[in-house]
Design a protein around this nucleic acid. Structure first.
Lengths: 167, 167
DNA sequence: TGCTTTTATATTCCATTTCATATATTCATA
DNA sequence: TATGAATATATGAAATGGAATATAAAAGCA
């Protein structure tokens, strides 16, 4: 039976690779915290997907399907199906814009709003409890850094796409 | 057509809710960074799931299926199926332990190791590039905070489970 | 204007993932 | 030690998600 191998080069962390790998830490923290709150969402009869969509729509005037997909981190074709169900439930509505008849504008309905608003309050409570162990400036710092990472990546993606477009 | 409503109470961020919601920032940053690296994984003929499993196993002597599931953040039944396929491919192997015949020990094979090692090097490179925009101590700080969040939640989960068990 | 390319959404098909449950084993204890 | 509860893994059905493609509209341009 083989012994575990150390892959690290000199001067690195001596723990297992993933334990200090940023992408793992992000996935694991997201997974852990989300799981807790998702229990709350389900308790109130919403699906996680629906919660995400409503949370993204609630304080916006309406979004194009594709914009919304980027925001909620779903594939476009997947979001189309989620929205189908949500329209049936009266949580959101589809409408066409005049300027471009391909576009579909998604807006939250009053009913959707009624359902999501208390959940947002619950989400804020949950966030407070979840970060209790962090001290002082850490939460602000964390959010600041995460926003930087997200922004950097969006820029990177856009750049890559533009370069493809140039071909 | 309704105007967007502000849900925030006094003194809060004035941007849309999700843009400053920790769980969203974690999910979005994880999603964005992972997507980049996943392209690299696929290029090398591995599936994301397989990469995760191998990355978790590579510097460990072997793990019980359920332990591994917790680490890679999969459902147990899901991991069982992923492992089925990986055994077929010769990337990992299942073996039984003597102490408890229910348990299945999962270990990476030499072949799995050969495939995952260069990917770990690539992962480290990618991480370096991904955090270029962060300054000085920010990466260390970020990892430190994420580890705290993950730890706190594991503790919380264990506590909750124990309480259920007491019923 | 007509033609090609690009963009936005929907649809179809298939792989993945989950949920509930089955099976096997171990544990606790009467 | 027999019995019921708990634990580890596997399985099957159903839901979900994603890749490729179809459809429709707009944009670019010869």
């Amino acid at each position: 039976m083989r012994q575990p191998t150390r892959i690290s080069t000199i001067g690195e962390d001596t723990r297992p690779f993933v334990e200090d790998y940023l992408l793992y830490l992000l996935a694991a923290s997201s997974h852990a915290l989300s799981a807790e709150f998702h229990a709350e969402v389900k308790r109130r009869g919403l699906k996680i997907n629906e919660w995400r969509v409503l949370a993204c729509l609630v304080d916006r005037p309406g979004l194009m399907l594709t914009e919304l997909a980027g925001l909620v981190l779903f594939e476009q074709s997947h979001l189309t199906k989620v929205i189908d169900r949500m329209v049936d439930q009266g949580l959101v509505e589809r409408s066409k814009t005049d300027d471009d008849r391909r576009k579909v504008l998604i807006q939250i309905t009053d009913q959707g709003r009624k359902i999501v608003e208390p959940l947002i309050v619950a989400a804020r409570h949950h966030e407070k409890r979840a970060v209790e162990k962090l001290d002082g400036a850490e939460l602000g710092l964390l959010k600041h850094i995460l926003k930087k990472l997200i922004e950097g990546r969006n820029a990177a993606t856009v750049t890559a796409e533009n370069q493809n477009a140039k071909k």
